[in-house]
Design a protein around this nucleic acid. Structure first.
Lengths: 256, 256
DNA sequence: CCTTTAAATTGACAAAGATCAATACTTTAG
DNA sequence: CTAAAGTATTGATCTTTGTCAATTTAAAGG
């Protein structure tokens, strides 16, 4: 969780440059711009025209967070929709007794709208950076303006929310009905397929965080990883994890 | 789960009448009509004008289900939004190994849109009647039409979805981070405050179903109820449950 | 390179919760 | 009213998972 001074110094360097987009020398950070939005199926802004896109990013700056910094704090209100431009963050809920439950990891191109859009704007989760993060904060008031003229945009937002809903439902069943090995298998497959997109990856997630994703203690998580290693399902060296036998992990996920 | 023949006979009688709304004697069931929608804050149709409301209910009939009948089956596609007109239903997920997790109970005035609205229309949960149910099935294609002209309606739908999202998040934390007494307390408080709206209620939910709401076995649920009775938090006679000490139950919910 | 601190791992033990089996109620069907 | 079937309750026992303490490994700062 502690700040990382090497990352920090690199960031400072970047921040010291003037805005490369608008060339306003009074600005020490890049502005947001339409390139902030990855051009994929999940982009809620994909149906907007240039004029609409510009309305959204107008006057917004990119914000940078260091590893461990809180981007959104649970139970506080904010009127931002966040678009991740670079880096990874964890979305998690802080329960009583200091326990955390990590709902998902977000990366480049992902949006965070879940909180209380049109609904009091209170966020029911905390978002914090697990690597240095660059993101755009878009005032959600601007979204409302778009609704009037562009119903396709509303459909897109609704689609995002039903998708999120279904994700939460399947996660809920997984967390409540599977034994520990099944839940750890799910976490590993999620990281491989959704986040790092590689069989072998170096993660900045600690064992405690992997445990928070799998709803168990760090000790239990370590023991399950150990079992997986002994069965040759995975290989690990400190923060590097390699999936050796995905079919077997899937089998554990379903039957474990 | 088995059908209830007394309920059935009553329903048959109702079904044999002609439509009391449109007086079309060829119809053996009531049509849907604008009175299907309860006039409260959660009504997603509250901002529609008469013309729009009529578009929605036009040609739709009320459908009746018997206790135990399946209204929506998990992993099937349907293009309906369901509006509950009478009775109660449970929304639950069927996991592997035959285990069920009841997400919530719905009653008069509630809508079911969660599934895959604008998103493939596949429902990720099963809905089944826990009492005789009357509901309207509204073709979701009609909703799309409304978007073009009424952006306020889109906002309303989004609001429903963010609310559902936040509900799922808090339920997820409750189910994963609380001990059994806390989870049972949550279930009882939910039934009292959200469903039956009375300290004393007779429920058609079996102990198994109460357990499915609390993520535990029926035996464990019974034991916790027994403890609550011994501590004078509740009183039970078969299917009747009475909350005697709500503050204490809330205390168990938070600290249990 | 060494010191200090944090993170990861391991083992022994305790607690929470599930399973299994037996018994007691309730409800339904005749 | 009574038998049969389903549901609820209880106790004994086993499994899963968490807790605590000790040890090892890795990382950060000088």
């Amino acid at each position: 969780m502690a700040g990382n001074s090497r990352d920090e110094s690199i960031m400072k360097k970047v921040e010291d440059k003037d805005c490369t987009i608008c060339n306003d020398y009074s600005k020490k950070q890049n502005c947001c711009n339409t390139s902030c939005f990855v051009d994929d199926e999940l982009n809620i802004f994909k149906n907007l025209n240039d004029e609409e896109l510009n309305l959204i990013v107008e006057k917004e700056q990119q914000i940078k967070y260091k590893t461990g910094e809180t981007i959104i704090k649970q139970n506080t209100a904010s009127t931002y929709v966040i678009c991740m431009k670079d880096g990874f963050a964890k979305i998690f809920m802080e329960g009583e007794k200091g326990k955390s439950l990590i709902i998902k990891i977000i990366g480049k191109g992902n949006f965070i709208t879940g909180g209380g859009l049109f609904n009091g704007n209170v966020h029911h989760f905390t978002v914090s950076a697990i690597t240095p993060v660059t993101c755009c904060l878009i005032d959600s008031g601007k979204l409302t303006q778009l609704f009037t003229n562009n119903s396709q945009f509303a459909v897109e937002l609704l689609r995002t929310h039903t998708r999120q809903n279904n994700f939460l439902l399947s996660r809920m069943v997984g967390l409540t009905q599977k034994y520990m090995p099944g839940r750890v298998a799910d976490t590993l497959l999620y990281l491989k397929n959704e986040i790092y997109k590689s069989n072998r990856f170096i993660t900045t997630l600690s064992r405690q965080e992997l445990a928070d994703m799998s709803n168990m203690t760090k000790e239990s998580l370590v023991r399950i990883l150990q079992q997986f290693k002994e069965s040759n399902l995975i290989k690990t060296h400190a923060s590097e994890i390699e999936i050796l036998d995905e079919p077997a992990l899937k089998h554990v996920s379903i039957n474990g």
